[in-house]
């Protein structure tokens, strides 16, 4: 009996929560609700929904509501593009400024720390050969680097097919090999070699044949760090 009664009341709950029941029906329903926890729970569930109803707008009101103006899309696209462009030119300018700064700082480090009388890092320093065979002509230069010394060598008139070793002689007389090349009779050998000796520790550049004969020797100018 009780469940059946609930069903009858249930169907009034919708009108009740919307405040649309007649006075006598409302009183009767409220009496039932006060005794029936299940209907009470039902009312509170429906109420949390009806509380939100005023927040929504009915279709008629929606029709009157303004929308975005038709030209807003083009404005948005134009603004987005121009702002990205501005950002890009900004970042390009920043990159350029950073590169310039690096160059200036690098140059200050390279040239600013150079001691007087010392060869500048990265500068070609021509060297003269003191021992030369008559038929051999050679031209060379050394370049001081932070990691060692580079030897630039041009030789003509060496024994074709013979292997030659280029070394840098350290202050203590020990030769540090920088590389080897094969002699060519009628053409210039143009090579670039690197040795793990700092320029100020180098005494000479030596080119030897495979037999150990010194073909070319160039005593380097002394660059003491103190000088």
């Amino acid at each position: 009996m009780r469940a059946e009664g609930c069903n009858r009341y249930r169907e009034l709950l919708g009108a009740y929560v919307l405040g649309r029941l007649e006075e006598d029906e409302r009183r009767e329903l409220e009496r039932h609700i006060s005794e029936c926890p299940r209907c009470r729970a039902e009312v509170s569930e429906l109420r949390s929904v009806t509380e939100l109803l005023p927040l929504a707008r009915v279709p008629e009101a929606l029709d009157e509501e303004p929308g975005p103006p038709p030209d807003l899309e083009e404005q948005v696209v134009a603004e987005a593009e121009s702002r990205r462009w501005r950002e890009r030119s900004w970042s390009r300018a920043l990159t350029a400024a950073a590169v310039l700064l690096l160059v200036v700082v690098g140059a200050l480090i390279v040239f600013g720390t150079r001691e007087p009388g010392q060869p500048g890092l990265g500068e070609e320093e021509p060297v003269a050969f003191s021992v030369t065979r008559e038929d051999v002509s050679a031209d060379a230069a050394v370049v001081a680097h932070t990691w060692g010394t580079e030897v630039l060598l041009e030789v003509e008139g060496l024994e074709a097919g013979e292997v030659y070793t280029v070394s840098i002689e350290r202050m203590d007389g020990a030769p540090v090999p920088t590389g080897t090349f094969i002699g060519v009779r009628d053409a210039t050998v143009d090579c670039q070699l690197n040795g793990a000796v700092l320029r100020q520790d180098a005494r000479a550049v030596v080119v030897m044949s495979a037999d150990g004969d010194v073909v070319l020797r160039s005593d380097l100018e002394q660059h003491s760090p103190e000088a």
Binding site: L12, G14, A15, L46
Partner: peptide
């Protein structure tokens, strides 16, 4: 129509 109101609110809750 009154009972329909009740069921309409019930399904509105479900949809939400």
């Amino acid at each position: 129509l009154r009972s329909r109101t009740y069921y309409a609110l019930k399904s509105l809750r479900l949809v939400l």
